[in-house]
Amino acid sequence: MRESVAKDVLRAFLATLAAVLVYSVAGGAGPALLVVLNAFSVVVLYFSVRRGEVFGALLGTMCGLVQDTFSLGVFGVAGLTKTLLGFWTGYISRRIDVAPFARNALFMLVMSVLEMALWVLITAVVRQGSVNWHGGLVLLQPLVTAVLGSSLFALERRIRARSSRGA
């Protein structure tokens, strides 16, 4: 049990590093890209579906806090929203079949929209007036997150199918 928790923490740490990597590359490409692409959310969604609610919550905490570190917002807001995102994504995906591409994309879209709504709500409460909609561009974020997340699963399935055919 202790070993599996330690392994999960290590995996969560590595996944967070992957998120920082994607975030840095996206930031280098242009600030507008960061408005529509939240690399941390994509990583949390992907790994939560794969590894369940406890891992999702842990990874959400790590990714969220790292995202908060690279922002001037209140430290912990993204941490809280991503913890809840990771937990509930992992929990629900264990109960319904989210394997088909369309269902997977829809599920991720719903979870991303909920995460964004929660983030806006908490930010509006703890730091009034700091929610910036970037002319509505930010509303594309859940859609981009869902497309990227479900594409990752589709890509993974294709690679697995090809390697099993090869074997």
């Binding site: 975030y23 840095s24 930031g27 600030p31 507008a32 960061l34 408005v35 939240n38 941390f40 995202q67 908060d68 690279f70 922002s71 001037l72 917002g73 993204a78 930010t123 700091s130 910036n132």
Partner: peptide
């Protein structure tokens, strides 16, 4: 790096 929540910050 640019602010992860809002690039104007």
């Amino acid at each position: 790096g640019v602010d992860s929540a809002n690039p104007n910050q």
